[in-house]
Structures are given as structure tokens and as C-alpha cells.
Computed example of a mutant assay.
Amino acid sequence: MGKNVSIAQIKAHLFAEQRPSVDWVNALRADERKGVQQLLVRYDRILEREAQLIQQFRDMRAFEKTFSFSGAQIAGVDEVGRGPLAGPVTAVAVILPERFELPGLTDSKKLTSEQRARFYEEITAAADVGIGTATSDEIDEINIYQASRRAMVRAVEALANRPDHLAVDAMELPLDIPQTPLIKGDAKSASIAAASVVAKVTRDTYMKTLHESYPAYRFNENAGYGTKAHLEALDREGPSPEHRRSFQPVITREA
């Protein structure tokens, strides 16, 4: 790599969206300029981090395969929305393709909104995805735990293919399918992590739509959780039809 190539040009090529060839990078290692060597240290760290994320994802998929027979279709199942004061609880079941890889996939709460959006697109484009919800009225009728189970069952039933085994985040479902409940499953199972991402994005998108009908509560910002602005709106407006009247902060603010 000749010194007639500026460090700025090398940086642009090294960190371009399209990864440079291994031969080009190896040739670059002979460049003794301090700035070039610093760029290579940064580049190698990125490669190391990417390798770690790939291995983490593969370990999560290998862990799932211990639940059932070789080649079994395993559906990861998760839900979001137990804690909010308004809106549905949303569950998702996901069967990932055998050769699918998504380095960096983990519990949706640990991801940025940009990462969740990108992963959502990749998961829904490639996987068998089922979505189920339970409304605020159902939550009030049967309680949030039972409503979460109901939403999860609906998500499994919405899959295009019947799974051979379920990996469920911290819950057992009333379904005649072998299943493994996992505490903090979205950090252990790739399929559950995928379900958590799709569930989070799906519910957040719905709550933003709901904001158009009930703008006073700022559902587009709080997704139904009891923020200060949300509680102040409840004091002014009283509950909307989407509020969970069995939840204490809403009960005390009934109009």
C-alpha cells in the first residue's frame, strides 16, 4: 500500500459499507504510518466484536436444539406489554429458518430502536411469524397473566406451520405441543429473542397509531406506560376506552 494513498482515503475504504478484501487489508498492514496502524487496530476490534456476536447467536441456536429432536421446528414465544396502563398485551411466536443468522440479536430491551427496526425487517422477511394480542378489556376480565398466556396461544396458532416444540419466555402454555419455559429466555434462545423484537416493534407501532385517536395521553411516546405526562392526562381526561381499568393507577382516576 503506497504512501501516496492518504490516511483519509484508507479510512473511507476500510470502513465503507462494503467490507474491503482480506488481501487489501493484509497489504495495508505493511504501511508503517502511525495513523494507518491506529485505523487497523480499530478495524480489528470491529471484526473481533462481529465474530463474538456471530458466535453468541450460534450458541443461542445450538441451545435451542437441545430441547427436541434433530431438525425440529422450534418456535420461540414472547410477549410485551404487561406493565402499561393502556393498550393490549402483544405476543409473537417465531420459527427461524435453519440457516438464518442475525448477529447481535438479543432481548429487545437491550437493543436501540434502530436495531429493533432493522432486526424486525430481517426476521419478518425470513421467518414464520405469528402474532397474537389480548385487549385491555380481556386483561381486565381475566388478569394480565392469563391475558398474556392467551395472547401467546393466539400467536402460536397464527403460525403458518405447526411447531414441533415451543421455547417460551418464563411461561407454560395450554397447548398440546412440547414446550420448554425459560427464565430470561430472550437472552438464551435466538427464537425467543426474535419474538421479543417483533412483539416490541409491533406493539409500539400500534400504540403510535392509537395516539392518533387519543393524543392527550401521548401513547406515541410512552407506549401506554405510566409516565408523568400520561398520569397527568389521566387526571385531566379520565381513562380512555383503551385503558386497563383493573390497574391501580387507572382505577383511582376513573372519571
Score class of each variant (00 low, 15 high):
residue 68 S to K: 02
residue 88 P to I: 04
residue 245 R to F: 05
residue 28 L to V: 05
residue 251 I to S: 11
residue 220 N to W: 03
residue 106 T to H: 02
residue 243 H to L: 05
residue 105 L to F: 11
residue 216 A to K: 14
residue 35 G to E: 12
residue 63 F to P: 00
residue 30 A to T: 12
residue 195 A to K: 02
residue 54 I to T: 11
residue 22 V to G: 00
residue 81 G to R: 09
residue 74 I to G: 05
residue 26 N to R: 12
residue 164 D to P: 06
residue 78 D to P: 00
residue 244 R to N: 07
residue 38 Q to E: 13
residue 241 P to C: 01
residue 208 K to V: 11
residue 112 T to D: 09
residue 148 S to F: 07
residue 50 E to I: 09
residue 195 A to Y: 11
residue 177 I to A: 05
residue 175 L to K: 06
residue 171 M to Y: 03
residue 196 S to L: 03
residue 254 E to V: 11
residue 154 R to G: 02
residue 6 S to Y: 03
residue 41 V to D: 07
residue 198 V to E: 00
residue 132 G to C: 02
residue 46 I to C: 08
residue 106 T to V: 14
residue 69 F to A: 09
residue 19 R to S: 14
residue 232 E to R: 13
residue 192 I to Y: 11
residue 98 E to L: 14
residue 91 A to R: 06
residue 231 L to S: 03
residue 75 A to H: 11
residue 195 A to D: 03
residue 66 T to R: 15
residue 240 S to E: 05
residue 66 T to Y: 10
residue 12 A to M: 10
residue 221 E to L: 15
residue 252 T to L: 14
residue 46 I to Q: 14
residue 72 A to I: 12
residue 97 P to D: 08
residue 242 E to H: 11
residue 245 R to A: 01
residue 119 F to C: 03
residue 19 R to T: 10
residue 245 R to T: 09
residue 253 R to D: 06
residue 209 T to S: 14
residue 57 F to Q: 00
residue 61 R to Q: 00
residue 31 D to H: 08
residue 100 F to A: 05
residue 215 P to E: 14
residue 73 Q to P: 02
residue 20 P to W: 12
residue 35 G to W: 10
residue 155 A to F: 04
